[in-house]
């Protein structure tokens, strides 16, 4: 059952840049150019994309914080524009992990205030505050002032607030941004439980590919305001299955020689390139049909340029590889 239905959402931002005295240039940025997707009950649905892709604009529209120019979005059957209040009663949001709370209030007081603001009161409020604090593991720090909390605690508090009204849908914008691995893992575990065990729909944005692979049931890849791919993580990886990802490790490779070698490959593309000290790690995308011959050619070409090949391995495409492959022709 689809809890979130988005159809042809469009949004543009118009700004005026001063060019002189009383002279302005109008700049239009199309943040969303006809985005459509659905998300199901109990699913963790991710929106992946580079910076400036329109992810935040999309979640803000769904969170009823922004109005679209055209298109429609429904959450649990309610229109996010025309039935905004109904949507807000059923949705929990987290827009930032380190802002959005009163510094001079404790975690518990902040939750109480927002709970009341959202219409929860009396014994139910106290129960909900205690429950969400327990759920995010902040009971011990409940009476700590917000300004004294660590980033990990602030991130958890943000999710706690999103859970206050016991929503069926959670909308989270980069919920683990800037967190250490332990805190990030904790949040991910919590989100998986909320979705898979409690049946909530979670919509989240991220550009952390590693996290996306672990967390997401389905992914929409958003680039320049358009969704270019939408499917499960495995299916997306399969979609680039006509290619093989070859990881080549070189040591002390001069950039000029590297460029020369890469320019010689007609049908082989560079996917990723990392440098770790003096070791260059390249991931090359090779068509499956020519994989065997290509591997030999790769090693030969590098060696012929005097580059030391320390290792070659064929690896499973990661979501990052998928992302880069799919966005390769769209220069950023």
């Amino acid at each position: 059952m689809s809890t979130v239905i988005v159809s042809e959402l469009r949004k543009k931002y118009v700004s005026r840049i001063r060019k002189g005295f009383l002279k302005y240039e109008v700049k239009v940025v199309e943040a969303l150019r006809g985005v459509s997707f659905t998300a199901r009950k109990g699913e963790v649905f991710g929106i992946l994309g580079p910076n400036g892709a329109g992810k935040s604009t999309l979640v803000k529209i769904l969170a009823t914080l922004l109005l679209p120019d055209s298109g429609e979005a429904r959450i649990l059957g309610y229109d996010v524009v025309k039935e905004r209040d109904e949507v807000r009663k059923r949705v929990g949001i987290s827009m930032s992990v380190e802002k959005g709370f009163f510094y001079k209030l404790t975690a518990r007081e902040n939750l109480k205030y927002f709970g009341m603001l959202y219409g929860i009161e009396g014994p139910r409020l106290k129960t909900r505050v205690d429950e969400v604090l327990r759920e995010v593991g902040l009971v011990k720090h409940a009476d700590k002032m917000y300004e004294e909390m660590s980033l990990g605690m602030k991130a958890r508090l943000s999710i706690a607030r999103a859970l206050l009204s016991d929503p069926e849908v959670l909308i989270l914008d980069e919920p683990t941004l800037g967190l250490d691995p332990v805190s990030a893992r904790r949040i991910r575990g919590l989100l998986l439980e909320l979705a898979h065990k409690q049946g909530r729909t979670i919509l989240l944005t991220t550009h952390n590919m590693f996290e996306a692979e672990i967390l997401l049931d389905r992914v929409a890849i958003l680039v320049d305001g358009k969704i270019i791919a939408i499917d499960s993580v495995d299916a997306l990886k399969q979609s680039v299955a006509d290619s093989v990802f070859v990881e080549v490790r070189l040591s002390g490779a001069p950039q000029e020689s590297l460029k020369k070698v890469l320019s010689n490959f007609q049908d082989i593309r560079l996917s990723t390139h990392h440098r770790d000290g003096t070791v260059e790690k390249l991931t090359l995308v090779v068509p499956v049909k020519a994989a065997d011959e290509a591997l030999e050619r790769i090693v030969h070409e590098f060696r012929s340029q005097g580059l030391k090949v320390r290792g070659v391995s064929v690896k499973e495409p990661t979501l990052e590889d998928v992302f880069i492959t799919l966005t390769a022709h769209r220069s950023m």
Binding site: A63, T64, L65, R88, I93, M95, K99, G100, L117
Partner: peptide, 18 residues
């Protein structure tokens, strides 16, 4: 500036009232 305004605006009533 503090990032709190969106959460007040997103209460289920008119933004100005909240």
């Amino acid at each position: 500036f503090l990032g709190i305004l969106p959460y007040i605006i997103s209460a289920p009533s008119s933004p100005s009232l909240s």
